[in-house]
């Protein structure tokens, strides 16, 4: 199964429409489930949900995950070594996503699809590519707070 997620901030109708069309014309033969957020475009050929409290079960079931460039989504998946394709949503503010995406792409943790027209190709790449999992150092807020309170 291929799982597509746009995240919670803003919808990405163009991506959903593109994937839906690729499934319709059978360029994508796998089952696809999409999390479309508040999107106005309703897919015709794929299953969809709008929001879910957690996407973990979808990530877990998916062979390939296609997501926006949200740092949370990226970290949740690269830390587990899952097959992840990211694509920028032009409507999301900032434009700083290249920082984490570049870093993770260099490490071989994801496939960066820079143009929506190349998404079918990116899926093919992801199928055969080996994704190494990324292990970041994590911190404990409790310890930081203790330190801060002690510091006066």
């Amino acid at each position: 199964m291929i799982f597509v997620t746009v995240g919670t901030s803003l919808p990405h109708d163009r991506l959903i429409m593109k994937i839906d069309n690729l499934v319709g014309e059978e360029s994508i033969k796998e089952d696809v489930v999409a999390q479309i957020g508040a999107g106005k475009y309703i897919p015709k050929n794929i299953d969809y949900i709008r929001f879910a409290p957690s996407l973990e079960e979808y990530y877990h079931r998916a062979d390939i995950i296609i997501s926006n460039c949200g740092a949370g989504t990226i970290m949740e998946n690269v830390t587990k070594g899952r097959k992840l394709i990211v694509i920028q949503n032009p409507d999301v503010t900032g434009g700083h996503e290249w920082e984490i995406v570049t870093k993770m792409e260099k490490g071989g943790h994801l496939v960066w699809c820079k143009n929506i027209e190349d998404i079918a190709e990116a899926i093919q790449t992801a199928k055969t590519k080996k994704f190494s999992s990324f292990k970041p150092k994590q911190f404990s807020l409790g310890e930081i707070i203790k330190e801060l309170i002690a510091s006066k």
Binding site: A71, G94, I100, T102, I145, L148, I149
Partner: peptide, 27 residues
């Protein structure tokens, strides 16, 4: 006291809010 924690999406440069707050937080 304040603790500002920058997003993992910022690898090299802070966000606008983050940049404005450098030196103005407890951490």
């Amino acid at each position: 006291k304040t603790i500002y924690i920058e997003s993992p999406s910022r690898v090299y440069y802070p966000s606008l809010a983050g940049k404005m707050l450098i030196g103005k937080t407890s951490m």
